[in-house]
């Protein structure tokens, strides 16, 4: 039975530095294992499509440019992604990774949430083809 049990802590809090991080002005460093934005390495990918198959929220689309020469482009939607890292777990060739530095992704437009990963010439080729009328994009599956 007492009144004001918290008093000691109040005084302590008043004379110590606040626990606040000065976030938007100083950046915080995320822990090593943090699951941020997905990063794709087109050099290692063999196009097994396992990541696409098991993605719980259809965030990954693997577009085939040339299957024999192993040319793939990944269209990644951070707005759909739930950052579960199942694709990273499944990928046997370590071409997928979740970055621990890219996690601030707010945007005022939704267009920002369509990210193309791959070799530059492949992306240019795909976008060019998609821009032409009448020709559909390469099949996803």
């Amino acid at each position: 039975m007492a009144i004001g049990v918290l008093f000691g802590d109040l005084v302590k809090a008043l004379f110590t530095k606040p626990a606040t991080q000065n976030y938007p002005f100083t950046k915080t460093i995320a822990p090593e294992r943090l699951r941020g934005k997905l990063v794709y390495d087109p050099e290692k990918c063999v196009g097994c499509m396992l990541c696409m198959k098991d993605c719980p929220s259809n965030a990954i689309e693997l577009l085939t440019v040339d299957k024999i020469n192993k040319k793939f482009v990944m269209r990644y939607h951070p707005d759909r992604c739930v950052f579960c890292a199942q694709c990273v777990q499944l990928c046997r060739f370590n071409c997928l990774n979740m970055s621990n530095s890219l996690w601030e992704m707010a945007s005022t437009t939704k267009e920002a949430f369509e990210v193309y990963y791959g070799r530059e010439e492949d992306i240019a080729f795909l976008l060019e083809r998609a821009a032409q009328p009448g020709i559909n994009e390469p099949p996803c599956e």
């Binding site: 109040l10 809090a13 008043l14 110590t16 606040p18 626990a19 606040t20």
Partner: peptide, 9 residues
């Protein structure tokens, strides 16, 4: 009050 609660305020 914020300082008592260990915040910046």
């Amino acid at each position: 009050v914020a300082r008592f609660q260990s915040r910046v305020g």
